[in-house]
Amino acid sequence: MHARLETLISLRDRQPVEAATAAHVAACAQCAAELRRLTALRAKMASLPAFSPPELWPAIAARRAAAPATPPRWRWGNIAAAGSLAALVLALAASFPQYRTATPATSVMPRTAAGAVPLANLVERSQRLEATLRQLPQRPAVAVVANSAAIDALQSRIQRLDVEIAGNAQEASDHARLQELWSQRVNLLNSLFGVRYAEAVHAGYRATDEQGAL
């Protein structure tokens, strides 16, 4: 009975395998040859020549220069991903002490006679959420692609909002619009925190009440 390909790859990579299997491979000409072939193939792949990229720096520099004036494109697929992920993790995020402090329920936020949350409160809440986000650990070096897509989408949306907010703040003409933009910003930061926190917890992060007291 010969060793499975998966086992031979483990042997090649010096990963632990059953002693009996290792002994068999050492004694079996066919398995030993297959192991040598796998080792040689890995070396051959690693020595494949590199590809030379065309000159892309001018395009990158131009796109970077244009970025503030050109808000990132919003992708509906990312919206859906961000929305569903955010919904899934919101309950989890609510257990984070700083999050509880930074994001009181909307129902307890002070409101104007017209029922809107005052602009100053929205700005303060936004700042507290950003401070809370900064307290989360750095993103894992190897991230789940779906999380990254959602985080990218939320960050892009926030950047786009910031451009709009900056424009409206300079004009100072439409207070209601500004209020609406800040309200959207708070909601997006809430979602972003939810995804980032879920990712951090998945990577082994645990928030403590002591941290919450900071």
């Binding site: 499975r4 390909l5 998966e6 790859i9 483990s10 072939r37 796998l38 193939l41 894992p140 190897v142 991230a143 789940v144 692609v145 779906a146």
Partner: peptide, 23 residues
């Protein structure tokens, strides 16, 4: 496994299948 949001054994089995196809 983290990149693909799957298990390490998924990665191992896919690697073996890919090597089989390469061979």
């Amino acid at each position: 496994a983290q990149l693909f949001d799957r298990s390490a054994s998924f990665s191992k089995s896919q690697l073996a299948r890919a090597h089989q196809a390469l061979r």
